[in-house]
Design a protein around this nucleic acid. Structure first.
Lengths: 396, 396
DNA sequence: CCTTCTTTGTCCACTCAGTGGAGAAAGTTC
DNA sequence: GAACTTTCTCCACTGAGTGGACAAAGAAGG
């Protein structure tokens, strides 16, 4: 299939495309209800969109009584590629223009192997998805990387956990390889976009998404838009001090949140506890697998292991401590907890909630939900697709 | 003089008014350079503004070679009232439409006396300014109060240091008394607006203003707009934990920033030190005045008193500790320190800077100026005038 | 001093987005 | 089958905005 290159010619068309993306197929009349344009003008703009083949006619709409109306929908052949590069694995997914996931692959991988090796793998995963008949090509791609990004250029800047990526022209390189427009962002920001598009944050305008994976990061949404900060490092909360004079952190300081609680820190603490004979449960898992991960701790806690539970609670306390500060400062309408450690589930959530509700003032916490993300591992790729679709569905 | 009631009829007129406010008198041609409208259209809109008397013709403009052109300026009879209600004093000022301060009064006062008593005083101060011939009436007023505000309604919500104000319809009451439109906001937000309009933050889009007065608060500006949070309590950083298991705070927790450093805390610590005989300098001042304030500590430090210096340094460390967290999270392009304690000057600033630069990551601090506010006690009233002018100079 | 060039302001015909009413087509309801 | 609704199309009309022509009023240069 020939790839779409058209872009909406004006704000009306952009608005219509976004409505069709978020609300699915609609009749002209239904679109008119949402868009505050005269029927005549609407018809003109829809006709122009039909000419560009960005949207197509699609059978009859459900009758609301009266003359039957034809549905309009985004071209069902449009395909977006969502890529979520984590510290230790990659997610690649194909979506249609309505951002529904048509296919999704996850593979372990180490970002530290550098951009060239990683992109080779990403491209082969994309090729696999294409080969399985889900897409003949891509109309756009969104990429998430685990570090700060200079957003307009799509270039990672000084990423601590991914040396070798600093300044690598991710956007340009991938755009060339894939032959389609590409947008690059921090993985946490994409998770926020994902939860906003299809998850728990659909109705909230100002919220935070705290992602606890190998590291810890925070996505900030202000007025419905992702806030990235002056140099693209906004939300970098892993190195906020959670425990004064606490553990030595790789960044050179002591007591950073990330040093006390994250996938990596949790695994290390669990291993230590097992070796010290504090937990038979953890020790047996350590012996069985030759190592421990956050998932092992979750399983041990679920089995009632007191040490594992205490590790989770302690981590929740540290995290809650930091989040409490952010809540006082930012006064969000919602806090979403996500990332690899969501397997720790409600034990973690309860510890965080306790700490936040205790430490922040009632005006900020009064009506503040703190919840787990709804989308799990798909949040990132959905957010990536959303990122590129926002770009393509806006006036050129 | 008859008060102006007109509002710009469209976005073009609003834009023109804002240009004239921020750039002073301008010829039609100069306006045309900034506004991307055809000369014809511009002339039409300017003529309409002249009809409303919001702007007036004002002599000849400086020649740029060619036919001489007439200047356009905002009506010089327009007057805004800026009111900044602090915990222990009130500032009231009159400005013209270009937000230049024409008269400014400061009076001590205790907010805890409640809204009725305070407004009586504010109104009498406004009357005094009017009587001195600076204004015959006001075209709009901006009010800052030291606590969270539900912004759209202009009503304080659950303000900790001003009991009796909760839910008081400040905006409506003052609008009735003054007979002009009124907008209400948190005093720290107004300080941020002031520094943005006429101070150090003129060219920055994302920045923080930390006001250290009787309490501690933070103004947040995102993309040039003040961010107020979901319930209007954004920036309420006084109760973020700065010292674990630290001092008991009035809010019920321990170690809040405000309990360790603020005008009130500093005065208390200084008194304690004087009584314990740690500082002859402070002790003599205590005896002379019967009490100590932040200004006394500043003076003692300037005189070389080691105890006073250490108090300031210690406070700067606590504050810097919290600001470091905010910088990591928010990645601002500028941090402004202001409020009553700016008298502490560079000793304080140095302590804050040291702490922030040490604790936050290089990407966030790399090019981050941390500076004192430029406007001092006028920042609040200028911000107040700016608030109401933004409201009045936008399409109705 | 006069010519030439530039800047500024005014006028006017023209374009184009957008409106809203009339009417046709195609349903539902009773 | 009559009456009412909903949807879609057509079309004359409005009004914002453009850009070119022209006039007015200065500066620069010989």
């Amino acid at each position: 299939m020939r790839r779409m290159t058209a872009r909406p010619a004006n704000a009306h068309q952009a608005r219509l495309l976004q409505l069709l993306r978020d609300g699915g197929p609609n009749s002209r009349a239904q679109l008119g209800d949402q868009v505050d344009l005269s029927r005549s003008k609407l018809a003109v703009e829809v006709d122009r969109l039909l000419e560009t083949e960005l949207v197509v006619a699609d059978g009859l709409a459900a009758s609301r009584g009266g003359r039957r109306s034809h549905n309009i929908r985004l071209n069902p052949g449009l395909r977006f590629l969502g890529v979520d590069i984590g510290a230790t694995s990659v997610d690649v997914a194909v979506t249609n223009a309505e951002l529904e996931i048509l296919g999704h692959i996850n593979q372990p991988m180490d970002v530290r192997e550098g951009p060239v090796a990683v992109f080779e793998q990403v491209l082969s995963m994309a090729a696999k998805l294409r080969a399985s008949g889900l897409a003949e090509g891509f109309d756009g791609a969104g990429i998430g990387v685990p570090g700060p990004v200079r957003f307009p250029e799509g270039v990672p800047v000084a990423p601590p956990i991914m040396p070798g990526w600093d300044g690598f022209p991710v956007r340009e390189a991938l755009s060339q390889e894939l032959g389609c427009p590409v947008m690059v962002d921090n993985d946490v920001n994409l998770m926020a976009l994902g939860e906003q598009h299809a998850g728990v944050a659909r109705t909230v305008h100002d919220f935070l998404v705290v992602k606890i994976g190998t590291g810890i990061g925070c996505g900030i949404v202000v007025g419905g838009e992702v806030y990235r900060g002056t140099t693209g490092s906004a939300g970098d909360i892993g190195h906020i001090q959670a425990v004064p004079d606490g553990r030595q952190c790789a960044c050179g300081n002591r007591g950073c949140l990330e040093a006390h609680f994250s996938g990596a820190a949790l695994a290390r603490d669990a291993t230590e506890a097992a070796q010290q004979g504090l937990s038979a449960e953890l020790a047996s898992r350590l012996e069985a697998n030759g190592g421990l991960s956050a998932a092992d701790v979750a399983a041990a806690a679920a089995a009632g292991d007191a040490t594992a539970l205490e590790l989770i609670r302690e981590g929740g306390r540290s995290t809650g401590q930091v989040i409490a500060g952010l809540v006082s400062f930012f006064n969000p309408g919602l806090v979403v907890i996500g990332g690899g450690v969501t397997g720790l589930g409600h034990n973690l959530l309860a510890a965080i909630r306790t700490q936040v509700y205790r430490q922040s003032l009632p005006l900020a916490t009064g009506n503040l939900p703190i919840v787990l993300g709804e989308l799990g591992p798909t949040a990132g790729v959905i957010g990536a697709a959303r990122l590129i679709s926002d770009h393509l569905f806006s006036p050129a």
